[in-house]
Every structure is written in structure tokens, then in C-alpha cells.
Simulated assay, not measured.
Amino acid sequence: MQYLLLGPTEARDDSHAPLPIGGARLRALLASLALRAGAPLAVTVADLVDEVWGDDPPRDAPAALQALVSRLRRALGARDRVLADPTGGYRLAAAPEDVDLHRFTRLARDGARQLDDPATPPAIAAATLRSALALWRGPALADLPEPARSALAAAPEALRTAARRGRVEAELRAGAADPASLLPELDALIHEHPYDEPLRVLQLRTLRAAGRPADALAAYERTRRTFA
């Protein structure tokens, strides 16, 4: 089984066919459990209720959660895919590598280490980071209600920004055939994160590599005004 959290929540069987996980709360429950796949402790009932129902929990939340867990087991095709913990709470019977968010985290960190390692060609780091970013299909944990989604998605979203910056850096160091092709993504990232100084520096270097010194000077002046 594969579980996808980097976009709409999905579960896919061994043939990569999606399973019918219908209903917003059912998808939220799966997302909450898959987020902790491989964790040593089960997800508590209180955390699951908060992350599934948000600010509008049912009157008998533990019973409602138990019914939702039963529905999820049926949707996944086996009772033993969602386990009740003796100490309370539930866990998904899955390894971290079964979840796209955890694969992304591993690949993004591998790519960052490769980029920092002088012995590793930057093209290898670029390929690793491209593989990591290709796992994204939309906002992380898209099916969790607020405010849980914003709180739990903050770390993967920040790592995604770092991976996008690192991929551009790696491709620039690898001698990108067309440095100008990297500029639209840099412009988008700067629009999202206008006070990210490393992004601004990377934009200037890319403009210079693209043979556009006048545009680099203009971008420098915009950066100076922005930070001032």
C-alpha cells in the first residue's frame, strides 16, 4: 500500500490503483494516521479528534472516531491496516517509506547533503531534489481541517521551499545549459518569500549566468529597497 499526503489524500494498492476513500473526514483520518506512519507511539484519540473534526467535534467523539476507523478499515480492504493500540489511540500499519511525505523528506535531506558535499557532483544533487519535488501534487495534508493543517503542514512546506531553492542552486552549479530557464521558478519563490535573502542572492547569480548583468543590477536594487 502507498499513502499520498502531498496533495489530496489517497491510498493506492500494490498495482498503484487508488482506493475509494470517500468523505472529507475519512480522508482526514487517513492523513492524520499516515503522517505518523512508523512512529513509536500510537496517535491519541484526542489528537485524531482534533485533526479530523477541527473546531466542531461530535458530542461522543471517541465513539464517532471508532465508527470512522471501522469505515477506514473497510475502505483499505483489511482490518489490520488500522490497529488499535492497547494504551489507547490508533496506528496505521505502514512504514515511513509507504508515505509520500516521508519519502519526500528523506530525498530532500539527501539532496541537501549532496549539495553541501564537495565530492558529490551537483548534477546528482539536482536529480535527487527533482525526484523529491516530483512527489508533490498540491498542498501538503490538504484534507486536514484548519488549524491542524497549517500547523502540521508548516514543516513539509518549508522543506519544499528549501528543496526548490536547492534544486535551482544545484542546476546552476552543474552548468545549466539555459540558466534563464531557472528564473521563472525563482521569481515565483521570491513572490512567495520576498524576504528570503538566499533566494535573492540566487536570483542575482542566475541573472549573471544568463548573461543579463543589467537585469541583475536592477534586481539588486529592488532587493535593496525591499530589505530597507
Rank of each mutant, 00 (worst) to 15 (best):
L202V: 05
A214W: 14
A132I: 01
A176W: 04
W53I: 11
A180P: 03
E171M: 14
A94N: 01
R91K: 08
E51R: 09
R103M: 05
D47P: 07
T44Y: 01
P118K: 05
T206I: 05
P179E: 02
L159R: 04
G138M: 05
S131E: 14
V82S: 10
T223S: 15
A132P: 02
S15C: 13
H193K: 12
V52H: 00
A170I: 06
P96L: 01
A180T: 00
L5H: 03
Q114V: 09
R109Q: 11
R79Y: 13
V201E: 12
L199I: 01
D60E: 15
P139R: 08
P198D: 06
A28S: 03
L183W: 04
S131I: 02
E10N: 06
P118W: 03
W53T: 09
L83K: 09
E97D: 12
A95M: 12
G175T: 11
H102Y: 00
G23F: 11
L182I: 09
L6H: 01
P194I: 07
A125R: 00
A218K: 11
R113C: 11
R160P: 01
D55H: 12
Q203G: 10
T87R: 15
A210T: 06
L141M: 04
A153G: 04
E157K: 05
T226V: 12
Q2K: 08
T128Q: 07
A75G: 02
A163R: 00
A84G: 14
Y90L: 07
A170S: 10
P57E: 02
L144R: 03
A176P: 03
L68S: 08
A84T: 11
L92D: 01
R81D: 08
E10Y: 08
A188T: 08
Y90N: 06
R137S: 06
G138L: 08
R27H: 01
S181A: 15
R208L: 15
V201N: 12
T44H: 01
T105W: 08
D100C: 06
L35A: 09
A94D: 00
D60K: 15
G166L: 05
H16P: 07
P198Q: 06
D50H: 13
R165Q: 09
A209Y: 10
L101Q: 00
D85C: 11
L29C: 01
L33Y: 02
L189Q: 06
D14P: 10
D55E: 13
L183A: 04
A158D: 10
A140L: 07
L4A: 05
A218T: 07
L33V: 01
R71C: 11
Q66C: 15
G54M: 04
V49Q: 00
L172D: 03
L76Q: 07
P213L: 08
Q2E: 15
G175I: 14
R164D: 00
G138N: 06
V69Y: 10
R212N: 09
A94E: 00
A84L: 09
L4W: 09
L65G: 11
P184T: 00
S131F: 06
R165E: 10
D98M: 07
R225Y: 09
P86C: 10
S70V: 15
A93F: 02
L68F: 07
A154Y: 13
V43F: 03
A127G: 14
D178R: 14
T226F: 09
A154R: 10
G166S: 08
A17N: 09
A11G: 02
T120Q: 08
G138Q: 07
A84Q: 11
R79M: 12
G166E: 02
D98V: 05
P145D: 05
